[in-house]
């Protein structure tokens, strides 16, 4: 009897402690997203109310005019950036999935001359920062007439070593016996790849797809270096356009644009959270 009541007390105490920590962590979490709440609230304000203190978290003079202004009345309007970003991101994701999965299959499940030395070369270049590639790629694109076109962002996004690396890691975990029995059944390599390996690798493909989506969507340095025509700008670069032109004087418009820029990625993240987290943690844990 006595022992049971002690156990019960301990459990209750643990529960209270857990509740207490939950409240604290939620409070810190709220502080973490406070800048975003401020952004959202400001985007519905009149410019004169932006810096009122204490902060009006729910705008008393509520307006949606900022969004109309940003989306339709700017030059170029925000939807142009949206279309550019969607186009580039979608092509990059599909292209990367295609080239990376093919190459990963070759590097992990086929035997051919020079395979390991080529893969070593891939690994060797993974540490190279974008800054090293910036100047030569700029020149290459200029020479090919691709500078200031979307190709200058699509091409580097389609052929990544990271994609090959992530998928290869996953392909290696699929038992070789599967390929062997497919071979005995007379399936060619491409059929084995397409009908057996790819379906099994769906989680890895999903991870790579959502990681690429978020990274391409948010990429800032690439478009900054390779694009100069405002009508070709992607969302992040379009946003800098707002900041530069308004010189920090039009916070409501800048915040409405920021909300518009962040919103889709939050939706994508919430939908694919599991695969995203699996993707970014894939490399961090040994084994």
């Amino acid at each position: 009897m006595g022992k049971e009541s002690i156990n019960f007390d301990k459990k209750t105490r643990e529960k209270i402690g857990k509740l207490f920590m939950t409240v604290i962590m939620f409070a810190i979490g709220i502080i973490m997203i406070l800048p975003f709440v401020w952004m959202l609230s400001t985007s519905f304000k009149l410019e004169v109310d932006v810096f009122k203190f204490p902060i009006e978290w729910i705008p008393r003079r509520f307006t949606t005019k900022n969004y109309v202004e940003v989306w339709l009345n700017q030059n170029p309007p925000f939807y142009v950036y949206y279309l550019n970003s969607i186009k580039i991101t979608v092509i990059c994701v599909l292209g990367e999935l295609a080239t990376s999965s093919l190459a990963a299959y070759g590097f992990s499940r086929l035997n051919f001359k020079g395979r390991d030395s080529i893969f070593l070369m891939y690994l060797g270049t993974m540490m190279i920062p974008f800054q090293v590639l910036m100047v030569p790629r700029f020149m290459l694109f200029q020479w090919l007439g691709l500078y200031n076109t979307h190709w200058s962002l699509i091409l580097p996004g389609m052929f990544t070593t990271l994609g090959v690396f992530l998928l290869r890691q996953y392909f290696l975990t699929i038992p070789m016996e599967l390929s062997e029995s497919a071979r005995i059944d007379g399936a060619g390599e491409f059929r084995t790849f397409w009908q057996i390996i790819l379906p099994l690798a769906k989680p890895a493909l999903a991870s790579l797809a959502i990681l690429t989506f978020v990274w391409r969507w948010n990429d800032y340095e690439g478009p900054l270096v390779f694009l100069s025509n405002k009508n070709l700008y992607t969302i992040p670069l379009g946003l800098t356009n707002f900041i530069d032109e308004m010189g920090g004087q039009q916070n409501t418009l800048i915040m409405a644009a920021s909300v518009s820029a962040i919103f889709p990625i939050i939706i994508v993240f919430l939908l694919g959270q599991k695969y995203f987290i699996e993707g970014i943690t894939a490399g961090s844990i040994k084994g």
Binding site: F36, M39, W217, P236, L239, F242, I243, I262, I265
Partner: peptide
């Protein structure tokens, strides 16, 4: 997951 431009604009 938010892009650096939007974040910088907010903090600015």
């Amino acid at each position: 997951i938010s892009n650096v431009v939007a974040i910088s604009a907010i903090w600015l």
